[in-house]
Simulated assay, not measured.
Amino acid sequence: MKSKIITLAALALFVVSCGTQKTAPVAAAEPATPPTESAKAVTLTPELAEGQNLYSNNCAKCHELFEPKKFSQEEWTPILVRMGKKAHLDAVQMTSITNYINSQL
């Protein structure tokens, strides 16, 4: 009987924790966008805007967004490769994000 209660409690905790992660990025992605746009007064092309959108929506699911200028292009390369694998992004998405980051440096 105890094992059933513990199993149900663990399952409920898992479901609740998964549900909270899905709603948190929406709030985190919106405030992160204005500082990025105000940091660089360059009009984004549709391709760069797509990269910014992918960066904001995919990266903010797991952690706080970093300002592109926080790292150099050489430092960003392995970070983007590693995080792209974790986020299960395809080559086109990774290229869009990489181009966006590089445009902001």
Rank of each mutant, 00 (worst) to 15 (best):
V42G: 08
L65T: 04
A32P: 02
L11K: 05
V26I: 15
N53A: 13
E37I: 13
G84N: 01
L11H: 00
A87W: 02
K22T: 12
E47N: 05
K4Q: 10
T95C: 00
L54S: 01
K70A: 14
M94C: 11
A91M: 11
T36G: 05
A41D: 12
A9H: 01
E30S: 11
S3F: 09
A9M: 05
A27H: 15
C18T: 10
L11P: 00
F71I: 02
N53D: 15
L80E: 06
H88I: 13
K86F: 10
E30W: 08
C18R: 06
Q93S: 12
E74S: 13
L80Q: 04
Q52R: 15
A32E: 05
E64C: 01
S72M: 06
V16Y: 11
P46M: 01
L54G: 01
T95S: 10
P25S: 07
L65N: 07
S56W: 01
S3I: 14
K61R: 08
L11V: 10
I5L: 13
K22F: 13
Q21W: 06
A29L: 09
T45R: 12
G51F: 03
A28Q: 10
E47A: 10
S72G: 10
A29E: 08
G19L: 15
R82H: 08
A24S: 05
V92Y: 04
G84A: 03
V15K: 00
A9S: 13
S17R: 03
E64D: 14
E50C: 05
C18N: 06
H63F: 08
T43K: 10
M83I: 08
V42I: 11
A28R: 14
T33D: 01
T43C: 04
L48I: 09
P68K: 01
Q73Y: 03
A91G: 01
V42P: 00
N57C: 06
G84R: 01
P78V: 07
D90W: 01
A60Q: 05
I6G: 03
V92A: 11
L11A: 15
V26S: 07
